[in-house]
Design a protein around this nucleic acid. Structure first.
Length: 419
RNA sequence: GUGAGCGUAGCCUAGUGGUUAAGGCGCCAGGUUGUGGCCCUGGAGAUCGUGGGUUCAAAUCCCACCGUUCACCCCA
């Protein structure tokens, strides 16, 4: 027996009610803010990710699905959403459009990780990006969108964590100060942090080991070492968020696991926190497009994990609209009626009515059971008697009322009854 | 990659060494002529995660592997 590969899963019809709900909310949010859809391939040149996400990050070093195709191309399954969007922006000359260019995407991403709740090897990301504009008002817009997404989904108690990690001008200076702070404690650090000290010093800040937390607690803050422009930018973002009434918490330990972030970084946490709690995260990436060979072009964006949204939807269970049900189930008795049922089902479907036709020559009782379990609004019943009079019985499955309707009237009556 | 818990029909669960592995949900059929939901009756459906081992005898004990969950890690 084959099983879905480790860390992957099937989304069964029942489940899709949640997914459809989440995706529809996400898409309508984006359209509301003027973000347009962009779909990118499921695999890309591996370099696209190694150059942007950064060597030394776990994503690049140990989690990417990298393979060679038959032409010897080194490809990688999409590891995250932002770099492909920037690639498409450059490839199609979207910098020639009025800036900023606002795009959104929904699609799978792949990382070879140890699966657990809320963490999969294939997960689905929804994200939006605004490219070509450095105005802090866009940072605020993106954060507002992230906030509004979860509000519109009906998830209560989500919170936004905010920080600024500076730019390529001020960050080196900060990292120096940070290393100095840690130099006295090098012996006491956990083994991971000893490695971070030279490779990824920013990540020292979000280590969860008790010892390291203590040291990180007294560490210098990124926000105290921002250059003038970065500080101004950050303060302006605060101001705009205040104007918008978006609540947020400053978190001086918030850094992100991808190298391309500059200045604003933020994360969205649900009310109920667990191991894999983060619902989504984002920030500014003003050097990313330049890294890909474009002209210096600022960008800011956000990405959320649909699995984690669905997880929280189930936990809080706001009203999720059920999947659509058939308007009518067409039942028949005997081979002549079956032919007529086939014609009628086809006609009704031409009129955009969702119809399920009986199959397999079951007893009427069996057919009615099926109509019931499918949640059909009506049953259309065709027997010998109805057939000879060119009628059908129309049964309302909710009330149990039934009437005889001429076949020629069936579409009209069902159309009316659909509401 | 590290540590821990779990793995019995599609789903949930009982069964901790001894005859045909039990129940509930769901599914299928029937409860007299062509009518669902409730109820009743019957039926199908399980190599007890996989492979080895211990034993006269293993779902039950041991080992390995796989999967899953939780934590670390990482991040969405």
């Amino acid at each position: 027996m084959h099983k879905a590969p480790r860390g992957t899963f099937d989304i069964l019809p029942q489940e899709h009610a949640y997914w459809k709900y989440a995706e529809e909310k996400a898409v309508s949010l984006c359209l509301l803010y003027g973000y347009q859809p962009l779909s990118t391939p499921i695999f890309e040149d591996a370099q696209l990710f190694t150059r942007t996400v950064g060597g030394g990050t776990d994503i690049v070093d140990k989690e990417m699905y990298v393979f060679q195709d038959k032409g010897g191309q080194e490809l990688a399954l999409r590891a995250e959403g932002t770099a492909p969007v920037c690639r498409a922006y450059l490839e199609h000359g979207l910098f020639n459009l009025a800036q900023p260019v606002k795009l959104y995407y929904i699609g799978p991403a792949f990382r070879y990780e140890r699966p657990q709740a809320g963490r999969y090897r294939q997960h689905h990301q929804f994200g939006f990006e605004a490219l070509g504009e450095a105005d802090p008002v866009l940072d605020a817009e993106v954060i507002e969108m992230a906030w509004r997404l979860f509000i519109s989904l009906g998830l209560s108690g989500v919170s936004i964590q905010l920080n600024s990690i500076g730019c390529k001008l001020c960050r080196p200076g900060y990292l120096e100060v940070l290393r100095q702070h840690y130099s006295g404690y090098a012996e006491r650090l956990c083994s991971d942090c000893k490695a971070r000290l030279t490779r990824k010093p920013l990540r020292l800040l979000d280590c969860k080991q008790a010892v390291c937390q203590e040291i990180a607690g007294t560490a210098p803050k990124t926000t105290d070492h921002l250059c003038h422009e970065c500080r101004l930018h950050f303060e302006t973002v605060h101001g705009y968020l205040g104007t918008l009434g978006i609540p947020f918490y400053l978190n001086h330990r918030l850094v992100r696991g991808l190298d391309y972030y500059t200045r604003t970084v933020f994360e969205v946490e649900p009310q109920e926190k667990g191991g894999q709690s983060s619902l989504g995260g984002g920030g500014r990436y003003d050097d990313l497009i330049e890294t890909l060979g474009g002209n210096p072009t600022p960008g800011v964006g956000f990405a959320a994990g649909l699995e984690r949204i669905v997880l929280n939807l189930k936990r809080e269970s706001p009203d999720i609209p059920p999947l659509p049900r058939p308007v009518a189930f067409v039942a028949y008795l005997g081979p002549e009626a079956k032919i007529e049922a086939l014609k009628i089902a086809s006609e009704l479907r031409k009129a955009e009515l969702a119809i399920i036709m009986a199959t397999g020559d079951k007893s009427l009782k069996g057919q009615m059971r099926q109509a019931n379990s499918l949640g059909s609004t009506y049953a259309v019943i065709l027997g010998k008697e109805e057939l000879s009079n060119r009628n059908a019985i129309l049964r309302d499955m909710g009330s149990g009322d039934q009437q005889t309707v001429p076949l020629t009237e069936l579409t009209r009556v069902l159309k009316q009854g659909q509401k």
